[in-house]
């Protein structure tokens, strides 16, 4: 009797394991299916031109052909475009952290006249979608003579109301007694902000930085508007200009090779920091 029920238990256990493995494999297959467009791009990027053009159906390349990558690297200035994107994404993310953390510091740790109204001005700006403003901002940037400059490409990303909000939420949970102790020790407000508050907030800063970096790296409309010389194009704008419709003659293999190359940085950053992005989103954006 006892033996049998033991058998039954192991059978049930085994069934459970099989079920779980099947479930996981199903999810994995579904994930790969969802990512078919990316796999498709990678496959095309390794195909010879005649393989791309053929009417036959084949998804995977016949050989590991690198010609498309060589053309993309040698003829399209892709490193320059990626460098431009990197400068824009990196510098604007850093500036965002500075502007947002200072504003959040003010909102979270001080009491002063007009604080509520000023905070509403920050939150209220979130209902104005950024893309609605691009035309007027383009004129402002042109008047400041910032067309075709890095500063012009970055300037609209220097503040994010959402980042201020997220950091304020985080700072509000910061121990008030710790700050009072620091002040009693003769530590000024700015010293407290720069030496104590910021270093102890690295998780939220990292989250804001990463999501901001991926966001600005991927942005299209603004850099399209404020650049009109090839050298200043960002990768996202440049790739759409390799398009056959735009009068250039690169084959689809080359365009896909360029696409894969400019995908790599944002995907790498995303995969490495995925957990952090999720955590930061939860604490900042939704609750509160």
């Amino acid at each position: 009797m006892i033996d049998r029920s033991g058998d039954r238990k192991t059978i049930i256990k085994r069934k459970k394991v099989v079920k779980s493995v099947l479930y996981q494999l199903f999810c994995l297959a579904l994930g790969l299916l969802l990512m078919t467009p990316l796999i498709y791009a990678v496959c095309i990027s390794f195909m010879r031109p005649d393989e791309v053009l053929t009417k036959e159906i084949h998804f995977f390349p016949k050989s590991f052909y690198l010609g498309n990558y060589i053309i993309a690297l040698a003829q399209t200035n892709i490193f320059r475009f990626m460098f431009n994107s990197f400068i824009v994404a990196f510098v604007s993310s850093v500036v965002r952290i500075v502007t947002a953390s200072m504003a959040a510091f003010s909102f979270a740790f001080f009491d002063y006249r007009g604080k509520k109204v000023l905070f509403y001005l920050v939150v209220g700006s979130m209902i104005i979608p950024a893309d609605v403003l691009v035309v007027q901002n383009y004129f402002t940037t042109a008047e400041l003579r910032l067309i075709n400059t890095y500063l012009g490409m970055m300037v609209v990303f220097f503040v994010s109301a959402m980042n201020i909000f997220v950091m304020r939420q985080h700072f509000m949970t910061y121990s008030k007694t710790l700050r009072e102790a620091a002040l009693v020790d003769g530590c000024g407000n700015f010293t407290f902000y720069a030496r104590i508050l910021l270093p102890s907030s690295t998780p939220v800063i990292a989250t804001v930085f990463i999501s901001s970096f991926v966001g600005t790296w991927n942005t299209y409309l603004w850099p399209l508007l404020v650049t009109n010389v090839n050298n200043m194009r960002t990768a996202q704008v440049a790739i759409t200009m390799l398009n056959i419709n735009e009068g250039s003659s690169y084959g689809y293999g080359t365009i896909m090779a360029a696409a894969v190359m400019i995908l790599i940085p944002s995907i790498l950053v995303f995969l490495v920091f995925q957990k952090r992005i999720v955590g930061g989103m939860m604490t900042g954006a939704v609750k509160g």
């Binding site: 996981q24 999810c27 994930g31 969802l34 995303f270």
Partner: peptide
């Protein structure tokens, strides 16, 4: 699950793909 981190990443990945890159891929597709 044991390998859930793999499919979580795949489910989320489109977030890291820019509009211009996915547009170029679909233009070919």
């Amino acid at each position: 699950h044991r390998i859930s981190i793999a499919y979580e990443a795949l489910f989320a990945l489109s977030m890291a793909v820019s509009a211009s890159v996915i547009a170029m891929i679909f233009q070919l597709a």
